[in-house]
Computed example of a mutant assay.
Amino acid sequence: MGQQAYKSSARKSWRIRIPDRPKSVVLASIFLFAIGVGLCVEPIEFRSAWAAKRGHGTPGVFAAEEYIKEPKGGSHWSGPFTSENGRVQRADIFFGGKVDHVGERVRVVYTGGDYVYPPRGGWDWLWDASLFVFALVGLVVWIFVYPVRALRRRRVRLVRGSQPA
Rank of each mutant, 00 (worst) to 15 (best):
Y146Q: 05
C40W: 14
V25Q: 07
Y67W: 11
P147F: 06
F134A: 15
F144E: 10
Y67E: 08
G96H: 03
G74Y: 11
M1K: 13
L126E: 05
S24L: 13
E104W: 01
P147H: 07
G97T: 04
E65V: 06
P43E: 05
P43V: 05
W50G: 00
R21Q: 13
V99N: 03
G122D: 08
I35K: 02
F132C: 07
P19K: 04
R160I: 05
K12I: 02
S29E: 00
G36Q: 05
V141R: 03
P118F: 02
K98D: 10
G73E: 10
R152F: 09
V37Q: 08
K7G: 00
P164K: 04
W125M: 01
I16P: 03
S130I: 14
Q163P: 00
F95K: 01
V148H: 04
W77M: 03
A51L: 06
A34W: 11
H101K: 15
R47P: 00
G55S: 08
R160V: 01
R155G: 05
S13H: 07
M1R: 13
R11V: 02
P59G: 11
K12Y: 01
G38I: 06
S29T: 09
V106I: 15
I16N: 07
H101M: 04
R90K: 15
G73V: 09
S75V: 03
Q3H: 15
G113W: 01
G113A: 05
W142M: 07
Q3P: 05
V137I: 15
V109D: 05
I44D: 03
G103L: 04
K72H: 14
R11D: 07
Q163S: 10
W77R: 02
R87H: 13
A150M: 09
K23H: 02
G55A: 09
H76D: 08
P147E: 00
G2W: 11
R15L: 15
W125P: 00
E84R: 13
W14P: 00
N85K: 12
V37P: 01
Y67N: 05
T82N: 06
A63F: 03
V25N: 04
R15M: 13
N85I: 05
G74Q: 10
V102S: 08
V156G: 00
R105D: 03
P71I: 05
E66H: 15
G2M: 14
Q89Y: 14
S83P: 08
C40F: 15
R21H: 12
W125K: 00
W125H: 04
P71F: 03
L126N: 02
G112K: 02
H101W: 01
S130N: 13
E70A: 14
R153Q: 11
R90D: 03
G55N: 07
L126H: 04
W77D: 02
H101R: 14
L136W: 08
S29D: 01
A165D: 09
D100W: 00
R149H: 10
